[in-house]
Amino acid sequence: MPAISVQDLSKRFGSVLAVDGINFSVEPGEVVGFLGPNGAGKTTTMRMLTGYLPPSNGSVQIAGHDTFSDGLAARKAIGYLPETPPLHPEMSVSGYLRYVAAIKGMPRAARKPAVSRAIARCGLADVAGRVISTLSKGYRQRIGLAQAIVHDPPVLVLDEPSVGLDPIQIREIRGLIEELTAPLGAPSSARESGVDRQTVILSTHILSEVEAICDRVILIDRGVVALDESLASLTAGGRRLEEVFSQVIAGDRPPAGAAS
C-alpha cells in the first residue's frame, strides 16, 4: 500500500486552476523532493495532502485512508510543517509540544516520552522551558519540525522547511531531516511504529538539499507534474539537477514571443 496516493488532483480558486489533475504515489520510506517555481501549486498540493484544503477534483489517500471520506485517520497519519510554523507564541516549547501530542490523538501516557524524544531529536533541549515568542527563527523552524514528528506519523509533509534560515541553520535542519529518514540503525531506533523509515515529501528551492536527502524528485510547473523520476536516474552521467530543471521548465514553456 503506498504511503501517499494522489489521483487526478485538481484545485481551482475562482477562475484560476492552481493544480491541474496531478497523479503520483509515494511508497513507504521514500523521501520525495517536491520542486517547482513559485506559484506552481506546491503549497496548494501539500495543503490538499494534509486535508487542510479540499480538492476541487480527484482524491488523496494517506496510508490507505481517503482524506475526504476517512479524514480523521488520514490526518492522524500525517505530520505537517506548513510554510509558516504553526506556533502559539505565548506557550513554552514543551507545553506547546505536549498540546500538539494531545490534539494528534496520542494516549496520555505516551505523550511525555514522545515530547522529550521530539525535543531531543530537534535539538531543543536547551530551550524546552522557554516561551516560543522569545526564540529565534531557526529555533521556531525546529519547533515546527518537532510538532510535525511528535506523534511519530508514518507520513511527513514539510513545506519549505529551510526557508528564511541562514546557511548553518539550513544545514542543521537538513541533518535533522536526514536523521529522521535514515534507515533504522543505532539509538534512534526506539520507535514504536512498525514503519522502518518515515515517508517524507518536502518542498524546497534548494537543489543541493534535494541531492543530499531525496530519493526521488517530483517537479510541478503551472499545476501539472512536469517530471517524476528517481534522483539516481536524473543525475546519471554526472548531470546537475539545476541543468535538468531549467531544461524541463524552459522546454515546458512556449517561447516568450510565441504566446499570444
Binding site: Y52, L72, R75, K76, Y80, P82, P86, L87, P89, V100
Partner: peptide
C-alpha cells in the same frame, strides 16, 4: 497566528 492550519490538519 497561522495555527489554524495545525488545528485543522490534526485528527
Amino acid at each position: 497566528n497561522g495555527t489554524e492550519e495545525l488545528l485543522l490538519t490534526s485528527p
